[in-house]
Computed example of a mutant assay.
Amino acid sequence: MQGTPQTHYFVPNPSYWPIVGAVALFCLGLGAALAVNGVALGGGMLVTGASILAYMLFGWFGDVIRESLAGRYHGKEDHSFRWGMGWFIFSEVMFFAAFFGVLFYVRVISVPELGDFEHKLLYPDFEAAWPLSTGPGITERYEAMSVWGLPAINTLILLSSGVTVTFAHWGLVKGRRRQLAAGLFATVLLGTSFLFFQAWEYAHAVHELNLTSASGAYGMTFYMLTGFHGMHVLLGTIILAVVWLRVLKGHFNPEHHFAFEAAAWYWHFVDVVWLLLFVFVYWL
């Protein structure tokens, strides 16, 4: 009944999905190890592992969605979901903090130290400037990415996507289903556009600027930070697309819509990380 305090916590039936997930991760790990060592079976194992993982995700999340639609989740479960998503995003913050720490260490500590008087005996031609153009491991000249152009366009795209997902949230809270669906669809399109332009940017960097992951510390940190961010944009776009499909099926209402909120939290996190990348990787 409405207003009746919750006296129990929903406990789902025993599930075999964790076992399926473990098998998927085993196949992925083994396939990666075999592929790196040039074993022909590696590629097949990777495809098998990815297929099993996709099957698990569809099945497990499908069970959760059906339990939610059946009204089995209430205040306590919602509280747990929010804490879980909050800690997940915090772990992602720490993930990127480690990579930004690498960039900070290289630029602020390592590069100036290698360029001081004591190290001139070891690396007489080294120039303590960023991006690096000379130094250990750099055998071919390359050009650094420009801050304007594709990076600026992608910044505008992600900032716009933050507006559209907020527009969709307002529509959900106010019961405007068309606004909700339109805002989500626009966000998915913007996320897809970002990925397209990032792929274009990578092709430009490799073929025209000669910038690869082997281009010293600059190339390594550039692809590490932007590449992992791109993976997160891909994941966020898929999540938002699934939420949009659920909206078209009539899921969510102004009182119960945490799946949408979780997707929006994650997307805003992705936006903030990109702004930091734009400033510290491209601009400064």
Rank of each mutant, 00 (worst) to 15 (best):
T7D: 10
T7P: 02
T7Q: 14
F10W: 12
F10E: 05
P14A: 14
V20I: 15
G21I: 01
V23I: 15
V23N: 03
L28M: 13
A33E: 08
A33H: 04
V36C: 08
V36E: 09
V39R: 06
V39Y: 13
G44H: 07
G44F: 10
M45D: 07
A50Y: 03
I52E: 06
L53S: 15
M56L: 01
F58K: 10
W60Y: 15
S68D: 14
Y73N: 01
K76Y: 11
K76A: 04
D78C: 00
F81P: 04
F81Q: 12
R82G: 10
F88L: 14
F88N: 12
I89F: 05
I89E: 12
E92L: 09
V93D: 03
M94Q: 04
F95N: 09
F96L: 03
F96H: 06
F100T: 07
G101Q: 08
F104G: 12
V106Y: 14
S110Y: 14
V111R: 02
P112R: 07
E113D: 07
L114K: 05
D116G: 01
E118H: 10
H119G: 00
L122C: 05
L122A: 15
Y123G: 02
P124R: 08
D125N: 15
D125T: 06
A128I: 05
A129M: 06
T134G: 03
T134S: 13
P136M: 05
P136T: 09
I138P: 11
T139Y: 11
R141W: 08
Y142K: 05
Y142E: 10
A144R: 12
M145W: 01
V147D: 14
W148I: 13
W148A: 14
P151E: 02
N154Q: 14
N154V: 03
N154P: 01
T155K: 02
T155V: 04
L156P: 02
L159T: 13
S160W: 04
S160L: 13
S161Q: 03
F167E: 12
F167R: 06
F167C: 07
F167M: 07
G171K: 02
K174E: 13
K174Y: 07
R176P: 00
Q179F: 00
F185M: 08
F185K: 13
A186F: 03
L189F: 04
L189V: 12
T192N: 09
S193M: 08
S193H: 00
F196P: 02
F196I: 15
F197Q: 07
Q198H: 11
V206P: 08
E208C: 01
A217M: 12
Y218A: 01
Y218M: 04
M220F: 13
T221K: 00
L225T: 13
G227Y: 06
G227T: 04
G236L: 06
G236D: 06
V243W: 02
L245I: 14
V247W: 00
K249M: 09
G250F: 01
A259R: 09
A264V: 07
W265P: 00
W267F: 04
W267H: 04
V272P: 08
W274I: 05
L276F: 15
